[in-house]
């Protein structure tokens, strides 16, 4: 069985936001405005949060890219009254926008607050509106949306592999953020394959997951940055 997972090396991440842009462009996430961002209305399936540790002068800041952690035991799927969000057989937590009734219970239930609600009908500047990705739907106002590890890319990769008559290779399917990262800080793959790079890195002593104590078992691992000697 395949279990898609990601490892993010905070040592390599420079906080350049390339992944943020790639994600928004790939998944038809509206541009938003600084005003919207200020009042907590911005939608970013992937965002980099600044984390600051210690106090001046011994302060250390780092950028932490965060997308849906695709929990193995997702608290958001249990609470949905209409089963619009669920975990698929490959461990991806999906949101079916045309079933969602917009109660925002799942968003509240997510301890990481990594699901997003469409407060308004999404809008793009005219030139961008013509260039939305046809492989991903445009969401309506009033529904919740989230990262799916670019599931459409998996389907495309499978089609391609089938057309070429070969099995799916790990490099065939990579989410937009992983592809965009110039430092290669994001690694994606099958966690159930013990030889995959993801599985290897997830076993690293530097590996940790956010709020592991809650028992949701996120499938996005982080590799802690080693403090400079």
């Amino acid at each position: 069985m395949v279990r898609w997972a990601m490892v993010i090396d905070l040592e390599k991440c420079s906080g350049c936001q390339a992944c943020v842009v790639a994600c928004a462009a790939e998944n038809n996430v509206p541009l938003g405005s600084p005003q919207e961002a200020e009042i907590g209305r911005l939608i970013r399936w992937l965002q980099t949060l600044p984390r600051i540790e210690g106090e001046y002068p011994h302060v250390r800041a780092e950028a932490v890219p965060m997308m849906c952690f695709q929990c193995e035991r997702p608290p958001c799927t249990y609470v949905c009254p209409v089963a619009a969000t669920y975990k698929n057989p490959q461990g991806v937590v999906a949101q079916i926008y045309w079933r969602c009734i917009g109660c925002r219970y799942c968003v509240n239930a997510c301890p990481f607050t990594l699901k997003w609600f469409n407060w308004f009908q999404p809008r793009w500047p005219a030139t961008m509106a013509e260039a939305t990705n046809p492989d991903v739907s445009l969401r309506d106002k009033g529904v919740t949306e989230k990262c799916t590890f670019c599931h459409h890319r998996l389907q495309q990769a499978k089609d391609r592999a089938r057309a070429e008559g070969r099995p799916l290779r790990p490099e065939d399917y990579r989410p937009a953020c992983v592809e965009a990262c110039p430092q290669g800080a994001l690694v994606f793959g099958d966690l159930d394959d013990p030889d995959s790079e993801v599985a290897r890195r997830a076993r690293s002593p530097r590996a940790f997951r956010f709020l592991e104590e809650l028992g949701t078992q996120p499938k996005v691992y982080y590799l802690a940055a080693t403090p400079e000697a």
């Binding site: 609470v79 009254p81 209409v82 079933r99 009734i101 109660c103 106002k141 009033g142």
Partner: peptide, 26 residues
Amino acid sequence: SVIVDLGRPDRLLHVVRYPHFTSAIL
């Protein structure tokens, strides 16, 4: 009040059509 709170009140009947019994809202 709950219906007003829904983002999509037009899909209210989804609660009856696709009930998910692990949800406290259901």
